[in-house]
Design a protein around this nucleic acid. Structure first.
Length: 589
RNA sequence: CGGGGUGUAGCUCAGCUUGGUAGAGCGCUUGGUUCGGGACCAAGAGGUCGUAGGUUCGAAUCCUGUCACCCCGACCA
């Protein structure tokens, strides 16, 4: 395709409101333009990349036995009232009225619509299992859209929903989707990790996130690897289980006593004031857990994690206690501690990391005072131990005992075992072989198509621009004509035609621009292979071939006669690598 | 939702404190010279200064409302 025929508005200057790399580069390289906060037009280059991602998703979903359909983007409020999410979802759900005054929503996700469909159409166990998916525009009215396509309000998502006769079959499909997702992200040419994740408001009891590894990722994950360096376990830090620390209990020293610590309320203040390390100061965080006051205690260098706290207490709701509420329960905000605590209504939960520690400092439960030389066991008894803190690199994994490594990731896919949450709310039942009416058991599986493309850029770029993985690049080859002499243009045209005949996509830069301008633009756009034709090298009878990941010095000079075949081989090799990676990823996970 | 900030040419921004009728660079158009990593010279086109109202002889500039957009935070004591 000829550059002069395409709308590729590249810009030199960095747009002021782009703070992350993918957003900046998509704007600069002419992929997207903003229409409103979190809402973007996908220009031709972006549309090509999104189509490629979507097609990979489509092929792998079909391969895994799922069927594509397309639901309406707009849905009537009644469906959402039926599932209960009309009230639960909050302002992220975009609601509006039609001309008759009826309430409608623009779908942020489609559990209701699909469940209603299956409820109406599926009556017998003979019609199950079903896995139905769509690739569609979603709208979530994010409180704070940011980072371009990473966290937009409107975005393209593949969402799949499966229906089963029992838990076992739903789990089988979950594993099937997990494998398909491994193949999808490997085929996109991305480095990623599947990690255990919180089920959040979607519910259910089994969930994995697929995280594209990138330092700019919003999510923190930890993982362990086996002796061959293959991932053996991974989880989002907010739920990664931590094993009890392996160390001998410390010997308690002098008896505990109270010291004055006026206006020293934070861990940092107290540690500095008393000349101690943060891990010697106990952090006591006050929560309201299912209407009970709870003091969660951990080392001062760690953070109490609400999701873990909720799990540890088997609770439904967790929030922080306000200072006033804490005082009414007999607690002293800023000076709370587990030792010498006189507050019978308060449940104390202590993180296992505190076990066997001595020489500690904690709040004395009196304004302006802390208790020092505190020893766990001697100075406070623990009724409930729990794994309460957010996992970090260096912690030992609670599943296999290995030491965690940490990474940052961008969540591009998520698989959930839903169970009967929606089928029971919306009465999606079928009749079994034994004539008994049962609820469908469901799973749901999402992939952010536009976010995957953005994540690919976060993971693959340099100072000059994007470095697209070949399978999702807008074009395979950037063909740069140096100068516009007839000989150069003829040769370039012939090469373009030869490649396109073999299904290789070429962005032929036929603009009347200086070479420097063209090189800069192609570096920005980031197609994996660049071919330069004309000028000095053509006089030597060669064209110059360079991978986007190569340096200038690594440019290969290929005789004109061999150029077409050489580049065809190069591109085929890049694409084949990704397919091979898909097979490997599937077998490894 | 809380706090902060910004709206001036297609883009990045200056001008606002101290009111006097709008600027630079990039981009764009035309002509010329150039031509292997974002060239140079010359001549141009392009703005109801977000918007509504107010103060004033006079408002991009001061005041009020409003809209849009951006950043930080929204469990870390």
């Amino acid at each position: 395709m000829r550059y002069t025929k395409l709308l590729i508005p590249t810009v030199k200057e960095t747009p002021a409101d782009a703070v992350v790399v993918s957003h900046r580069l998509m704007l600069r390289a002419g992929f997207i333009r903003k229409l409103a906060a979190g809402i973007y037009t996908y220009l031709p280059l972006a549309q090509r990349t999104f189509t490629k991602v979507a097609n990979i998703v489509r092929e792998e979903m079909n391969r895994a036995g799922a069927q594509e359909l397309l639901m309406p983007a707009v849905a009537p409020a009644e469906l959402w009232q039926e599932s209960g999410r009309w009230d639960q979802y909050g302002p992220e759900l975009l609601r509006f009225k039609d001309r008759k005054g009826g309430d409608f929503i623009i779908g942020p996700t489609h559990e209701e619509v699909i469940t209603a469909l299956v409820r109406d159409e599926v009556k017998s166990y003979k019609q199950l299992p079903l896995n139905l998916y769509q690739i569609q525009t979603k709208f979530r009215d994010e409180v704070r859209p940011r980072f371009g396509l990473m966290r937009g309000r409107e975005f393209t998502m593949k969402d799949a929903y499966s229906f089963h006769v029992d838990n076992a079959d739903a789990h089988r499909e979950y594993d099937n989707m997990y494998a398909a997702y491994c193949r999808i992200f490997a085929r996109c040419g991305l480095r990623f990790r599947a990690v255990e994740a919180d089920t959040g408001s979607i519910g259910g009891n089994r969930s994995h996130e697929f995280q594209v590894l990138a330092d700019s990722g919003e999510d923190a994950i930890v993982f362990t690897v086996d002796d061959k360096g293959r991932p053996s376990y991974g989880a989002n830090v907010e739920l990664a289980p931590i094993a009890r620390p392996e160390r001998a209990p410390e010997t308690p020293g002098q008896p505990a006593c109270v010291v004055e610590t006026p206006h020293k309320k934070t861990i940092d203040d107290v540690a500095k004031f008393l000349g101690l390390a943060h891990d010697r100061v106990l952090k006591a965080v006050l929560f309201l857990v299912d209407n009970n006051a709870v003091m969660a205690v951990c080392r001062g260098d760690r953070d109490v994690n609400e999701i873990k706290l909720k799990k540890a207490l088997g609770a439904k709701q967790v929030r922080l206690l306000t200072d006033d509420e804490a005082r009414r329960k007999g607690l002293v905000p800023g000076y709370a501690g587990p030792a010498a605590l006189d507050a019978p209504e308060v449940t104390v939960v202590v993180d296992i990391g505190v076990q066997g520690l001595a020489g500690l400092v904690c709040g004395a439960n009196k304004e302006g005072e802390h208790r020092v030389q505190v020893a766990e066991g001697r100075d406070f008894a623990v009724a409930i131990w729990g794994d309460l803190t957010t996992a970090q690199k260096g912690d030992r994994c609670g599943k296999n005992g290995d030491v965690y490594d940490a990474a940052r990731g961008i969540e591009v896919g998520h698989v959930f075992f839903l169970g009967t949450k929606y089928s029971s709310a919306m009465k999606a039942t079928f009749q079994g072989e034994d004539k008994v009416e049962r609820l469908c058991v469901m799973g749901c599986y999402g992939i952010g198509v536009t976010r995957t493309a953005a994540a690919a850029i976060e993971q693959n770029h340099d100072d000059d621009g994007i470095r697209w993985p070949a399978p999702i690049a807008p074009f395979h080859v950037s063909l740069v004509a140096l100068g516009n002499e007839a000989e150069t243009m003829d040769l370039a045209s012939k090469m373009e035609g030869a490649w396109e005949a073999q299904g290789i996509e070429v962005l032929f830069d036929d603009r009347d621009e200086r070479p420097g301008v063209k090189f800069k633009d192609h570096d920005l756009i980031g197609c994996p292979v660049r071919v330069a034709v004309g000028g000095k090298s053509l006089k030597e009878g060669v064209v110059e071939v360079k991978l986007r990941t190569d340096t200038k010095e690594q440019t290969k000079k290929v005789p004109v006669a061999e150029a077409v075949a050489f580049v065809t081989g190069l591109v085929s090799g890049l694409l084949a690598d990704a397919k091979r990676a898909a097979d490997e990823a599937e077998s490894r996970h």
